[in-house]
Simulated assay, not measured.
Amino acid sequence: MGTESPGIRDLLVGLFADDEVDATVLGHIRDGEIRSWVEAVDRSGLFGREVVAHLRQQWTEDPRALLDVLLGTADDLTRRRWLGEWGGGSAGERLIS
Score class of each variant (00 low, 15 high):
residue 1 M to S: 15
residue 1 M to H: 14
residue 1 M to K: 14
residue 1 M to L: 15
residue 1 M to R: 14
residue 1 M to N: 14
residue 4 E to I: 05
residue 4 E to C: 06
residue 5 S to R: 15
residue 5 S to P: 02
residue 5 S to K: 15
residue 5 S to I: 01
residue 6 P to C: 00
residue 6 P to V: 01
residue 7 G to T: 09
residue 7 G to N: 13
residue 8 I to S: 11
residue 8 I to T: 13
residue 10 D to W: 01
residue 11 L to M: 14
residue 11 L to A: 14
residue 11 L to Q: 15
residue 12 L to Q: 01
residue 13 V to Y: 06
residue 13 V to E: 12
residue 14 G to N: 13
residue 15 L to W: 12
residue 17 A to L: 02
residue 17 A to N: 00
residue 17 A to P: 04
residue 18 D to L: 12
residue 18 D to I: 10
residue 19 D to I: 13
residue 21 V to Q: 07
residue 22 D to H: 15
residue 23 A to W: 09
residue 23 A to G: 13
residue 24 T to P: 03
residue 24 T to F: 12
residue 25 V to P: 05
residue 27 G to K: 09
residue 28 H to E: 14
residue 28 H to F: 06
residue 29 I to R: 00
residue 29 I to H: 08
residue 30 R to W: 05
residue 30 R to K: 14
residue 31 D to G: 13
residue 33 E to W: 11
residue 33 E to Q: 14
residue 33 E to Y: 11
residue 35 R to Y: 10
residue 36 S to D: 14
residue 38 V to R: 10
residue 38 V to W: 01
residue 39 E to G: 07
residue 40 A to G: 03
residue 40 A to H: 10
residue 40 A to W: 06
residue 41 V to P: 02
residue 41 V to N: 04
residue 42 D to K: 15
residue 43 R to S: 07
residue 44 S to L: 08
residue 45 G to F: 07
residue 46 L to S: 08
residue 47 F to S: 07
residue 48 G to E: 01
residue 48 G to R: 15
residue 49 R to C: 05
residue 50 E to A: 15
residue 51 V to A: 15
residue 52 V to I: 04
residue 53 A to C: 03
residue 53 A to S: 14
residue 54 H to G: 10
residue 54 H to A: 15
residue 55 L to V: 04
residue 56 R to E: 06
residue 56 R to I: 00
residue 56 R to C: 02
residue 58 Q to W: 07
residue 58 Q to I: 02
residue 60 T to A: 11
residue 62 D to I: 09
residue 63 P to G: 02
residue 63 P to N: 00
residue 63 P to S: 02
residue 64 R to L: 09
residue 65 A to F: 05
residue 65 A to M: 04
residue 68 D to K: 06
residue 68 D to L: 06
residue 69 V to R: 05
residue 69 V to W: 08
residue 69 V to I: 12
residue 70 L to D: 04
residue 70 L to N: 01
residue 70 L to Y: 01
residue 72 G to W: 03
residue 73 T to M: 12
residue 74 A to W: 03
residue 74 A to H: 08
residue 76 D to P: 03
residue 76 D to I: 09
residue 77 L to M: 12
residue 80 R to D: 10
residue 80 R to S: 05
residue 83 L to N: 02
residue 85 E to S: 08
residue 85 E to L: 01
residue 85 E to I: 01
residue 86 W to R: 10
residue 87 G to P: 05
residue 88 G to K: 00
residue 88 G to F: 05
residue 90 S to Q: 10
residue 91 A to T: 12
residue 92 G to N: 03
residue 93 E to K: 08
residue 95 L to T: 07
residue 95 L to I: 08
residue 96 I to K: 05
residue 96 I to V: 04
residue 97 S to H: 10
residue 97 S to N: 09
